[in-house]
Computed example of a mutant assay.
Amino acid sequence: MASLEVLIWSFAATGWTLDWASTVWPNQDISEKNPFVRNHFGEFPDPIRFGVAKAASLILFYILYLIGELLIKASDTVPNYLYDVPTVLLAPLLIGIIGWYAFFHNLRLHLESKELFKTQRDE
């Protein structure tokens, strides 16, 4: 695995993990907003069950990445490289962006709720 692949997959795995951590943050006053997560894991997801699902989905993404890499190399319709970067790396980059976005979204909700409770206590 090339260093760019390691870097991008580390970005994706870190974002995915931070999304998990910020989703199961031990603040019982903030329920999960994502309808998919709510349907499968409830309003307040169990950290272990949700973490196993997040890890399994990341492993599945990696398997699909390997399959995509083989298919792109075997196909002439999709370029193997865009600006000297393997095309298939767009998939884990997208996963990382989604994970990091979800983390910052959840972090914002936690910080806002903390400020809200702080002002309510002060009154």
Rank of each mutant, 00 (worst) to 15 (best):
M1E: 05
M1T: 06
A2T: 15
A2Q: 14
S3C: 00
L4I: 15
V6S: 12
I8D: 09
I8C: 13
W9E: 03
W9P: 00
S10H: 06
F11G: 07
A12D: 12
A12E: 05
A12V: 12
A13N: 03
T14P: 03
W16E: 05
L18K: 04
D19I: 08
D19W: 01
W20C: 09
S22N: 10
W25K: 11
P26E: 10
P26L: 14
N27D: 05
D29G: 11
S31Y: 10
E32P: 05
K33A: 09
N34T: 14
P35E: 06
F36I: 15
F36N: 04
F36M: 02
F36S: 15
V37R: 02
F41I: 04
F41G: 05
F41Q: 03
G42F: 08
F44W: 12
P45R: 07
D46N: 04
D46M: 00
I48Y: 02
I48R: 00
R49D: 06
R49G: 01
R49E: 06
F50D: 09
V52M: 05
K54G: 06
K54F: 03
A56S: 00
S57P: 07
L58V: 13
L60P: 07
L60S: 03
L60E: 04
F61A: 15
F61G: 11
Y62Q: 09
Y62G: 05
I63K: 02
I63T: 08
L64P: 01
Y65F: 06
L66T: 09
I67D: 10
G68L: 13
G68F: 06
L70W: 14
L71T: 08
I72G: 07
I72E: 03
A74L: 03
S75D: 05
D76R: 15
T77F: 12
V78Y: 01
P79H: 10
N80G: 11
Y81T: 13
L82N: 05
Y83L: 12
Y83T: 03
V85D: 00
P86D: 04
P86Y: 04
T87W: 06
T87L: 04
V88H: 08
L90V: 13
I95G: 03
G96Q: 09
I97W: 01
I98Q: 00
I98H: 00
I98P: 01
I98C: 00
I98K: 10
G99T: 04
W100I: 13
W100C: 10
Y101R: 14
F103R: 01
H105Y: 15
H105L: 14
H105Q: 09
N106L: 11
N106I: 06
L107T: 14
R108V: 02
R108T: 13
L109G: 01
L111R: 09
S113R: 11
S113T: 07
K114Q: 08
K114I: 02
K118N: 11
D122T: 11
